[in-house]
Design a protein around this nucleic acid. Structure first.
Lengths: 194, 194
DNA sequence: GTCTATACGCTGATAGAC
DNA sequence: GTCTATCAGCGTATAGAC
């Protein structure tokens, strides 16, 4: 792995662990085993490197989500796969965490990868919920966009609860709770249609 | 309002806006209109002042939540009141935000108010869900603790979605989505019992 | 490409005068 | 109680040698 690459992956790790305001160029350089000069040769500065790192984390997260959401199966199975996939709740979400950073939120450019990730996710999940309704699997009274937002929020909020507790259990509870509510919104009939 | 008081409220505001790592003693002093000497006379340092500020924010948040959760009414009305109360989603949660701060999480003392707030909230909501089940208002299949965690997580996650989008709409969607799922888990019968 | 040198304001304090 | 002075180290670079 070359120097530029090590700088990006080190920045990804530190942004995940400490956020943007909590991460210094110096700390990134040290973790990457690179000097000052190297970093400023490959990147214009902290915002430039952070943006590169955030774009990559966003892409990776989206791929992980798509792995569950794009499976074969019923809507409940696909959403359940997304909710229940293996995570490390105490680490938080590497993309969602950026939404709490004041300097990321203050910059349209830095915020863009975060915005796009959640816009994509919300739409992807809403489509699956809509499919589930169309297939007769979920109650027609559900609003797909609202339900998708709630599902997405449960995951992000689960991280907050787990980190607050210092224990992953609240995250797992929140996921089970969401699955329980979705089960209550299932019609109990076998899905039909394409 | 005396100087010590102004320091605490300024710290509360800045911690809400910028988190712990993003907030400097100097910034707090400036907002409070106090000098260095004043701050170090009244508090031992940044962690001491921040802890005082966080304890107060936690107490205030709990009182706001109790205002909705402690109302008269059915379980759905009380939980709905909590979910739907007026908020400013783009500002985030002043207590939940601290869970994403690396230095708060690294310190048991600083994390304590955050931990206690969400432990209380989860238990409070779980009790109301359990009441709703006992009253025949909610399906007996729901797990009160899991459902309460999901409800709490929807609010915290809603903040993340709203800030990521730069728009309160995703928060409102998540809340409506959660209410829609709870409605699906309602029995449709009038609550009975005490 | 990477290194060292230099810069300047900020961070988080302590000391002592008033 | 509040003020000013002082401090070592960090944050975020830029310049120029190699």
């Amino acid at each position: 792995m070359d120097t530029a690459e090590r700088l990006v992956t080190s920045a990804q790790e530190l942004l995940w662990e400490r956020g943007y305001v909590g991460t210094s160029p110096k700390a990134i350089q040290e973790r990457a085993g690179a000097g000052q000069g190297s970093m400023y040769h490959h990147f214009r500065g902290k915002p430039d490197l952070a943006l590169t790192a955030m774009r990559r984390s966003a892409r990776e997260l989206r791929a992980q989500a798509e792995e569950q959401l794009g499976r074969e199966g019923t809507a409940l199975e696909r959403v359940g796969g997304y909710l229940g996939r293996e995570r490390e709740p105490l680490r938080g979400c590497r993309v969602g965490r950026m939404a709490m950073d004041p300097e990321v939120i203050a910059s349209d450019e830095l915020r863009a990868p975060v915005r796009e990730t959640f816009a994509w996710l919300a739409e992807r999940v809403a489509g699956i919920v809509a499919d589930g309704i169309a297939a007769g699997e979920l109650r027609p009274g559900l609003d797909p966009a609202d339900t998708a937002a709630a599902i997405t929020a449960v995951v992000q909020g689960g991280y907050v609860l787990a980190r607050a507790a210092g224990d992953r259990e609240p995250f797992d509870r929140a996921v089970r709770g969401a699955l329980g509510l979705l089960a209550a919104a299932a019609t109990g009939e076998a899905p039909h249609g394409a």
